[in-house]
Amino acid sequence: MTDALKRLSDEGVAIWLDDLSRTRLTSGNLAELVRDKHVVGVTTNPTIFQKAIGGSSDAYDAQLRDLAVRGVTVDEAVRMMTAADVREAADVLRPVYDASNGRDGRVSIEVDPRLAHNTPATIAEAKQLAWLVDRPNTLIKIPATKAGLPAIAEVIGEGISVNVTLIFSLERYRGVMDAFLTGLETAKANGHDLSQIESVASFFVSRVDTEIDKRLDKLATPEAKAAKSKAAVANAQLAYQAYEEVFSSDRWKALAEAGAKPQRPLWASTGVKDPSLDDTLYVVELVAPGTVNTMPEATLNAVADHGVIRGDSIITGNYAAAQAVIDELATFGISYDDVVQVLEDEGVEKFEASWKELLDTVTASLAKFAPKGGTEK
């Protein structure tokens, strides 16, 4: 059942789960996935927590009742609940963290998405989350918006490990890697142990095909149809090319000599949206050493059941073909720059909407559990 996942892991791809909930923790499911499915990390985002807390009948009731009695704000309540889940997940994965010398066994928690365009507030929130969760195997997620780049550099400079999220464009990815190196240089100057700083760059995959295929469908030509569902993998291939270039540079070598570890590319949004496609597509075609693939459980199970791992047969050595796929978009009147900007804007908006929905849900729950008739004396 897990041979394909083991092969994937053996090829140098760290398997992370793109989901977390209190039920997954209390049932022992996360521990089972670590034990049986080669899962060595967990990512979360506002949408995941909205589904976990909003869709749970009673898993969070005890904590919500205590928070209501204390009279905390809804923002504090949400942070206390999400931090508790991340903290417990980090404890489940602590043996993986120790065995991998801090490379894996990581759990991510994201800054408030409403701060995506506010650099100082993002920095402050990232530091607060690192303090609140208080586990060495935590990654603080910061979006790769223009305002996010200086925040990434600043937070890494403080010695905090970071998961950079919502990366769609190759230009922005290069900016992310530059921010990572700048942060490490600052951390070194500040006396931090660079070997203790971990980072991943979450490059979103399936959403690229979703947006581009939608535009190709409108053309309704045989040529446009033939071009569908190719851009996402090509975009990821070119991201890996950029990764290889940056992490073989003299600037990087100087940091590596000081103990730094590369910022790994993380393939995110790897659940296949188009039912006509192979449901393991964005896993089996994105195999390359030193990468992470974070999967929803359905994708994880699909790979375990029928994924065919062919090794690094698609990514390295095929960069010219990947560039040709991206260049071809212009012949259809599709602007790559517009696509990736739309996806970034939508990504932030979707997370903001999920966060607002989560706040509304928790507001209602706090009201339900609030003490009736005042406080006893």
Rank of each mutant, 00 (worst) to 15 (best):
S9Y: 11
V13D: 02
L17S: 07
E32S: 14
D36F: 04
H38W: 12
V40W: 00
T43K: 00
N45K: 03
K51Q: 13
K51H: 09
A52R: 01
I53D: 01
G54S: 05
G55T: 05
S56Q: 07
S57L: 15
V69F: 07
V72N: 00
V78Y: 02
R79S: 14
T82N: 02
V86M: 11
R87E: 14
E88S: 12
S100D: 08
R103F: 10
E110I: 09
E110R: 13
A116T: 09
A116C: 10
T119F: 11
P120H: 10
T122K: 05
E125A: 12
Q128W: 13
N137W: 06
N137F: 09
T138P: 07
L139K: 06
T145A: 06
G148Y: 03
P150D: 02
E154T: 13
V155M: 05
I156V: 15
I160A: 03
I167Q: 01
V176P: 04
M177G: 04
L181W: 04
E185F: 04
A189P: 07
D193V: 08
I197N: 01
S199D: 06
F203Q: 04
S206P: 05
R207Y: 07
T210Y: 07
R215W: 03
A220H: 10
T221W: 10
P222R: 10
E223T: 13
K225W: 01
K228V: 05
A236N: 04
E244C: 13
E244L: 14
E257A: 15
Q263G: 07
R264W: 11
S269C: 09
D274K: 05
D274W: 01
S276E: 14
L277W: 04
D278T: 04
D278K: 11
T280M: 00
L281G: 01
E285S: 14
T294E: 07
T294F: 03
T299C: 06
L300G: 07
L300Y: 02
A302S: 13
D312L: 14
N318C: 11
N318K: 13
A320D: 15
A324I: 08
L329D: 02
S335C: 08
V339W: 06
V339Q: 10
Q341Y: 06
L343Y: 03
E344V: 08
G347S: 11
F351D: 02
L359S: 14
A364W: 05
G373V: 01
